[in-house]
């Protein structure tokens, strides 16, 4: 066989050389290069996104456009003591929206776990008194864990269904709140791709601004 004439290559040297090459190119050059061009590229579409879409809010606060915050009273038995009772709520989160926590973000319950039903009922109870009239019904995402525990978004319905409660605890009219929600509807930015949703963190910042400006918008 012609193939057998060559002495077999001892596999250690090529392995080490190739691995070193990978470390240089794949481990250093590749992410390095990408990082180098990232600010310029991301400026084309959404400035700041390559750094985590960190935006500054009022009064020296800041937030990431990608991440939710733990704005919900769904865990509390008594709404009147909850500071967020007059705000739009994000989805429940096992991680309390701590981006660094990582682990245990998901719901530990299987799809047919009685505990899941109980938890769902608990959330519905907590959010329920004010939204029975809404034609949307209570959308599931509003009372259930997301996959990441960091999801800042709820569906349009998920925002609209909260309006009676917010109107009750604030002095804004339902109409004003509806306009606010409608102004905050987002999508992927590309037609026909992605869901229509509302970023609750941003929605609440607009809500707070509206309240502090005297509610006249």
């Amino acid at each position: 066989m012609s193939t057998g004439e060559h002495a077999q290559v001892h596999p250690v040297r090529p392995a080490l050389v190739f691995l070193s090459l990978l470390i240089l190119l794949a481990g250093l050059a590749y992410p390095g290069l990408a990082t180098g061009v990232a600010p310029y590229l991301s400026d084309v579409t959404s400035p700041g996104s390559s750094g985590g879409a960190i935006h500054s809010g009022p009064n020296g606060t800041s937030y990431s456009g990608y991440l939710g915050e733990n704005i919900t009273c769904a865990y509390r038995a008594n709404l009147s003591t909850c500071p967020y009772r007059a705000l739009f709520w994000t989805r429940p989160s096992e991680a309390d929206y701590q981006p660094f926590s990582g682990a245990g973000n998901e719901s530990p319950y299987g799809p047919t776990d009685p505990a899941l039903r109980n938890e769902t009922l608990f959330y519905i109870n907590a959010t329920g008194p004010f939204n029975s009239s809404n034609p949307c019904g209570i959308p599931l995402e509003l009372v259930s864990d997301s996959a990441s525990g960091l999801d800042p978004d709820v569906s349009v319905c998920g925002a609209l269904v909260q309006i009676p409660r917010i109107a009750h605890f604030s002095h804004l009219t339902e109409r004003q709140l509806q306009d606010l929600v409608n102004a905050n509807i987002q999508g992927s930015g590309v037609p026909y791709i992605g869901a229509k949703y509302v970023n609750v963190v941003e929605l609440d910042m607009d809500l707070i601004a509206l309240v502090s400006s005297g509610g006249t918008g």
């Binding site: 989805r91 799809p111 519905i124 959308p139 864990d145 997301s146």
Partner: peptide
Amino acid sequence: TGVSQSGGYLVGAEQR
């Protein structure tokens, strides 16, 4: 539970 699943069963899914 009476919850609306009009967007699908979204427990453990992302809203975007």
